[in-house]
Simulated scan of single mutants.
Amino acid sequence: MTPASHRGRYGPLAAPASEAPALDVDALLDDRGTEIVVCCGAGGVGKTTTAAALALRAAERGRKVVVLTIDPARRLAQSMGIERLDNTPRPVQGVVGPGSLDAMMLDMKRTFDEVVESQATPEKAQQILDNPFYVALSSSFAGTQEYMAMEKLGQIHRQAQADGTHDLVVVDTPPSRSALDFLDAPERLSRFLDGRFIRLLLAPARGPAKVMAAGMGVVTNALTRVLGAQVLRDMQTFVSAFDTLFGGFRARAEATFALLQGDRTAFLVVAAPEPDALREAAYFVERLGEDGMPLAGLVVNRASPAPRVALSPDEATAAAGRLDQGEPGTLAAGLLRLHADRARLGEREAGLRARFSAAHPTVPTVVVPALATDVNDLDGLRHVGGLLSGT
Results as ranks from 00 to 15, higher is better:
L201A: 13
T165H: 14
T144R: 11
P186R: 00
M212G: 09
Q159E: 15
M148C: 14
A213R: 12
D172P: 09
L183T: 01
L202M: 11
G215F: 10
A179C: 06
F133K: 12
M148S: 11
G195V: 01
L129Q: 13
A160V: 07
M150T: 09
D184S: 06
Q159H: 15
A142S: 11
G164I: 06
T144K: 13
S138Y: 02
A213C: 02
V219R: 13
F133H: 14
F182L: 03
P174K: 07
R199A: 05
I156M: 15
P175T: 01
Q161E: 15
V169A: 13
Y147M: 10
G164V: 03
R199K: 12
T165A: 15
L137E: 05
L201Q: 07
P186A: 00
D184P: 03
V171W: 00
S140D: 11
G215A: 13
L202V: 03
H157T: 14
A179S: 14
G164M: 09
L202H: 07
M212F: 12
P204A: 11
L202C: 06
V135Q: 15
N131Q: 14
E187C: 02
R196C: 02
R188S: 07
L168S: 05
H157R: 15
M148H: 03
M148Y: 04
I156A: 14
